[in-house]
Design a protein around this nucleic acid. Structure first.
Length: 346
DNA sequence: CAGTCGTGGCC
DNA sequence: TGGCCAAGACT
């Protein structure tokens, strides 16, 4: 294998020719001409991209930056507006921490993201990856990003067979030796682009890889089997009931979920707990009618089968739980709740 | 540290 | 169809 400086130089050269265009990215040519990306947009995109595909993020990024052009705008936004705008993107703790972080940047850093890894790491929702990514991409500091792409590229390059997450420290140390002092921001994006487009989980395009002749995993024939991962537990099936009450004036009965836990801080239909044996507990007295098909949805660690019950209720009846919303958009709900709503429309 | 926390696309 | 996977963080 060639030395680290040669490897990183070759990867940067590859990136200069193959960098993918993204709304939040300054292309390598413009970067080298002196253009720096806006730290707010780098941070926003990196938070949205946590465990989320570029394709899914793109529209959300445009809507957020159109509605809140600067971090000070976001910091001043109402919680409910931000949660509604995030609806459908998943991992809703990110949205709650997004607001906390924007407000911390305004309150503690005079409205500007700190150009410092440790200070970034101290912000809500900013972990090791995001702190390194913002430091490198926004401020061109020589920090090492380690995301899923980098884990795959590095384990293959060095033929690391230690399973994740155990291998994390080893991978980080190996990745750090490759991070260049020159153009670290472009390098961080380059190694992630390499993992996203060439060194893919299945059918990697090794023939197009700038590191093909250096890759110990490819030479050993084990690249496609890396990284090794500890086997995951099977997902149990949980059941629940969602109650969709429509008032005669068209308002819907919704309930804000508690800030912590599943779908924390989001609006949803009042319902039972989700477990093996759901209990009956309607939020308002009504003639409830169960739909004949249940909504199915899979979360990170369980499958949900949701029985949907609907009712039409008069104006003068007070609910035991939740509030009627006269202006309600299904798009403001998390996907599982929107699925239940869609079922009820048929 | 292992569990929690969403969603859509892919094969 | 069902499991895997995606620019992870938090507890």
């Amino acid at each position: 294998m060639r030395d680290p400086a040669t490897l990183s130089a070759d990867l940067l050269s590859w990136y200069d020719r193959h960098a993918r265009a993204m709304p939040w990215r300054v292309p390598p040519a413009a970067r080298q001409a002196g253009t720096r990306p806006d730290p707010y947009r780098v941070w926003l995109s990196e938070v949205m991209l946590q465990q989320t595909t570029v394709a899914a993020v793109r529209d959300y990024f445009h809507r957020f930056t159109a509605r809140w052009p600067e971090v000070t705008d976001l910091a001043a936004a109402a919680d409910a507006d931000v949660m509604a705008e995030w609806a459908g993107l998943g991992y809703y703790a990110r949205a709650r921490n997004l607001l906390k972080c924007a407000r911390a940047v305004v309150a503690e850093h005079d409205g500007r993201f700190p150009a410092d890894h440790a200070a970034l790491l101290a912000l809500p929702g900013v972990g090791p990856y995001t702190a390194a990514a913002v430091a490198a991409i926004a401020f061109d500091l020589p920090e090492t990003v380690v995301d899923g792409n980098v884990e795959r590229v590095i384990t293959r390059l060095h033929d690391v067979h230690t399973p994740l997450p155990q291998a994390k420290l080893e991978i980080t140390a190996l990745a750090r030796t490759l991070t260049p002092q020159a153009r670290p921001g472009d390098y961080a994006q380059a190694i992630m682009d390499l993992g996203a487009t060439i060194c893919t989980p299945r059918n990697p395009a090794c023939g197009l890889c700038p590191w093909r002749d250096d890759c110990a995993g490819r030479l050993a024939g084990s690249a496609t089997d890396l990284p090794k991962k500890t086997p995951k537990k099977p997902k149990p099936i949980r059941h629940g009931i969602a109650y969709i009450a429509r008032r005669v004036d068209g308002a819907y009965l919704l309930e804000r979920r508690p800030d912590s836990g599943l779908l924390g801080g989001m609006l949803g239909w009042p319902g039972s707990d989700w477990n093996e044996a759901p209990g009956e507990d309607p939020p308002i007295r009504a003639e409830w009618k169960a739909l004949n098909t249940e909504a199915r949805h899979t979360f990170t660690h369980f499958h949900l089968r949701l029985t949907v019950k609907t009712a039409l209720v008069p104006m003068d009846r007070a609910p035991a739980r939740g509030e009627f919303h006269e202006e309600f958009r299904p798009g403001d709900l998390p996907t599982v709740m929107r699925k239940a709503f869609d079922l009820a429309q048929k």
